[in-house]
Design a protein around this nucleic acid. Structure first.
Lengths: 587, 587
DNA sequence: TTGTAATTTAATAGT
DNA sequence: ACTATTAAATTACT
């Protein structure tokens, strides 16, 4: 039938069917109904595409308008959008598995996915799209995230869905879901804040052992009818010492440690970090963290003397009075864990999804075309982007010029070479012993025996030593500091020598990255990736199962950890002020 | 990433993916994913073929099994089936156009196509597959259906999707979708029941003018909560005179008129026919019929005096009290037509497609090999066929022995020679004037001017005369009766002389058939086919557009009638008892 | 070259 | 609106 006849002008044929389409309701006609299955013309596709980029879930009215514009039925437009979303979602998912890129995901879709993930507490969804944004241009800059996406997937990562990070007055707000990523790698026992500013990546990280406690702040959601401006919701992390700072010399493919880049180096002074986010969401995420042995034992290896093992049962922990400025709230609640490590009050699953409503979120189209590094941050006025909704949130030091390989972010003092301000000595500012409290343990099963071999404290453990075998490991910009972060005994314990690794498909990338910077080892992801290689032989079991959903789609021989890979990105969005039972949780 | 690696032994590579593939979902892997595009081996093809013959749309589980059997991924199996179905469908369609045969269509595929057509009320699909079953071995017996399949497709045919036909106590139940076909040819203004019994075809037909009224019985679907056994659902046709009877002297290639072959010749006595079927489905089909001018004017040419043209507006038609036995129901509803000739209450479009589920329909594999005539009927116990689901339905006179060229069907008295029992005189039993009622018209636009040239009443018009030009038109078994059926003025009017036909690819078959029997002209399909030839030059316009879907796939310059070709077969299946708004519709 | 494997796209069904 | 599936249309590959 399709032998020779040249296809007639499509628009004409479509016209036939739609021109007199009744202005009826929506479910009415599909093009097909009228005649045949019709292929969208390039014209139509163009418009659809544009509209999709603007809004991946247009309301009926908008669909109708579009439909009229391009001579399609509203129904067909609807279907097109549906299929498109599905397609992109699939791509996103796939890109997770393969670690491939996906610059084909318009910001609108990201926003949408974000929101979706946000509203459904489901980690799966979060993974998918949380992850997708990074996979864009990986290899190039070799961020930790990229490293992850490149590996075959043994790395277990969990996110904290936060949209803001505040340390003192220094504050970063995630704007397009790529500029602020907060996550931890259980196996590394390390918490990381990933920050992107104008295509340059920065990160702050610290091993669990640096964490004095973590608090979930629920504002004054319920039970406190006072009209007071609600306290910032989210996690409050209290450290016992300053974290580590890194930056990504853009494009070169790796992080190197650097000095405190926060405004006035506040992060080196103030040990309280506020991670703003939806308490309901964070509740579950926090539950996971605290269920980790590596978290619960985070102080065991060096701080046994500092904390009496008897205290932890108390449901309410008095917080150290010496606390500078943050939240001395009366609302405290014990974090209760379910068999799955989820809090009892975990969101039931009755999300209120704002169906196919265009989200009032800033959209960054520029992202779509430019093959730039994975992340980038608030440029006060991005083309096409409406940043107004974020305006009320104070952003410090955003008046940076375009950045080259050098970074400039919220810090007037040195970075790069002047990177070290508080190595070991930082302990004097906030020594572990000072802050250590009985509240470190959230359950009774904390004090577990530690293998003798794992007595590498974060202070002294050069757990990177195996990597030193590599000749080009010495990077001029790397300071000794790079050797004492991530003092995770477990990792140190199980970490195999590098030359013992089996070469997986991603091993190549690994070696490439290794050639780049000595700081490689400082990159949590890289580390974890190497570690993941080992996992091929040494499957590890984490207490979480919930995140381990995607794995099933990969290989059936994959352990649950396999699937639960790279939650690189933390989606964020409007915070649902919905009430959460416990208003305040301290770990 | 898939640069160059030479494809390894296929079975091995496939094995990789499938052998221990997780019992996971579907989106799994394509062979390609693993390595390269892989050609199915002869072995694999063999199995696939066999499976396809068993079931053209295997469920996922079955696909999985097959996949494992032949070392393919489930996905690939799925694709293979998909492509296969597409291919066969194409073949089928092509065979329609060319009039070629196609013994390459396994029964499973026919079943599938059937069901598909069934579930989608769409005539398109119905055409295709309605058509396919016949295309098997056409030439041989040259049934009307075959004739159709042979023509190039100008014939407009519409089906009534019925699964049973009852006249009095005589009853036929469609069992394999090929033994009971009820349809009409608008241009012929003739309604036909096609019946196949053990490879021999029979038919009953009558021009529209014989139809007193048609009722749609919806049983007591809704609004009648009484626990009464629902009245039989479907169409009830009331005639004003007995229909015509034909049979196909098997294998010889044509129908010839014969006597009433129904049990005790009930069809000659009882003017009420019950056509069982899904009311929802039939509703739309009936809507089409009543929208036809040729239907609405069916009495105009001879019975104008009998019915006052003023009455028709009444929404509810009192039915003649003289009605014998059938349905004197209180539920009557006006059949409302939309601009498209569809009833307002037309099924919304919510068919429940039992997706890719093998239908619980009797499958006759024997059909696959044997090049026997298109149709055949319920053999009480067919090999491999589970007839149980039809068991409850009484089948009369099925205890026939194998039939040769002679027929034996539900009639103990004469046929063949003793064929004429109620020619004109039958009118005395139920004269048009007696039954004529104002309800003949379903809308106001009925009484239209009739071309003067078309005043050929079904009583006198020898519209077959052109065919008499053929020498061997005289068949011993043909009676004069054959000359007065199908009194469609339009056809008679526009029918060209035979020798004026253009030779289409199928013209050859036509002539062959013509050489077979003088009864050719009695075969509605043959007639309509000839007629269709003419259409090449004389496009005709029917009020329906909906059916005209397939045309776009043929030639874009084809008129809408062109596509709406041969609805030869009426697929049937389980009747959906879903409620239909109007319970009872009278035309 | 065709024909077949596979992908992409519009649509349907069910949820 | 999402998922799963499909048929139809197309592309790719042998």
């Amino acid at each position: 039938m399709s032998t020779s006849t040249p296809s007639p002008p499509i628009s004409a044929s479509i016209n036939n069917s739609t021109s007199r389409r009744p202005p009826r309701k929506s479910t009415l006609t599909q093009q097909q109904k009228n005649q045949k299955r019709q292929r969208a013309t390039q014209d139509q596709l163009g418009t659809l595409e544009i509209e999709f980029n603007k809004n991946a879930t247009p309301a009926a009215a908008i669909r109708e308008r579009i439909a009229q514009d391009i001579n399609m039925t509203e129904r067909s437009v609807q279907i097109w959008f549906q299929n498109r979303r599905a397609k992109i979602k699939l791509i996103a998912k796939k890109s997770i598995e393969t670690g491939e890129d996906c610059d084909a995901i318009p910001e609108s879709m990201r926003q949408y996915l974000m929101q979706q993930a946000m509203e459904s507490g489901k980690p799966i969804a979060r993974d998918l799209l949380g992850r997708t944004p990074n996979s864009m241009n990986t290899y190039g800059n070799g961020t930790l995230v990229n490293a992850e996406s490149a590996n075959t997937g043994k790395v277990v990562i969990h996110h904290f869905t936060c949209k803001s990070l505040s340390i003192g007055t220094w504050r970063r707000v995630g704007q397009n879901a790529m500029d602020l990523v907060i996550f931890y790698v259980p196996d590394k026992a390390c918490l990381t804040y990933y920050i992107n500013n104008d295509c340059t990546g920065y990160k702050i990280d610290y091993p669990f052992s640096y964490i004095k406690n973590i608090t979930l702040e629920n504002g004054n959601a319920n039970g406190d009818p006072s009209g007071l401006p609600s306290r910032p919701r989210g996690l409050v992390v209290e450290l016992n010492r300053p974290p580590n700072f890194f930056m990504d010399s853009s494009g070169t493919g790796g992080f190197h440690q650097c000095g405190d880049f926060t405004e006035e180096q506040q992060a080196s002074q103030i040990m309280i970090h506020h991670l703003g986010g939806n308490p309901r969401q964070l509740s579950g995420e926090l539950a996971k963290l605290v269920s980790l042995e590596s978290f619960r034992n985070r102080h065991n290896h060096f701080d046994l003397h500092a904390m009496p093992a008897s205290a932890p049962v108390s449901p309410i922990f008095p917080r150290p009075a010496s606390q500078p400025n943050h939240m001395a709230h009366p609302h405290l609640a014990m974090f209760q864990e379910t068999p799955f490590g989820m809090p009892m009050h975990h969101v039931p699953r009755g999300h209120k999804r704002t169906r196919s409503k265009s989200v009032p979120v800033a959209i960054d189209f520029s992202m779509l075309q430019q093959p730039m590094p994975s992340f980038h941050v608030q440029q006060p006025s991005t083309n096409m982007t409406d940043t107004s909704i974020y305006a009320p949130i104070p952003q410090h030091h955003n008046n940076l010029g375009p950045l080259g390989p050098n970074l400039r972010i919220d810090t007037s003092s040195g970075y790069g070479l002047d990177y070290r301000q508080h190595p070991m000595s930082a302990a004097t500012t906030a020594s572990p012993s000072e802050y250590a409290s009985p509240s470190f343990y959230s359950s009774g099963a904390n004090i577990e025996a530690v293998p003798a071999s794992s007595f590498n404290t974060p202070y002294s453990l050069p757990f990177l030593s195996p990597m030193m075998e590599h000749p080009n490991l010495v990077n001029p910009s790397v300071s000794p500091l790079s050797a004492y972060s991530h003092g995770d005994p477990v990792i140190a314990d199980q970490s195999p020598p590098l030359n013992g690794f089996r070469r997986s498909p991603s091993a190549e990338f690994l070696s490439i990255a290794q050639d780049h910077h000595a700081t490689l080892s400082d990159d949590g992801m890289m580390l974890s990736e190497m570690y993941s290689k080992q996992n091929l032989n040494l499957p590890m079991h984490s207490p979480q199962v919930e995140d381990a959903v995607m794995a099933s789609q990969m290989h059936e021989d994959a352990s649950s950890e396999e699937m639960d890979q790279l939650h690189n990105m933390v989606p964020f969005g409007t915070i649902d002020p919905a009430s959460l039972s416990p208003e305040h949780i301290v770990i």
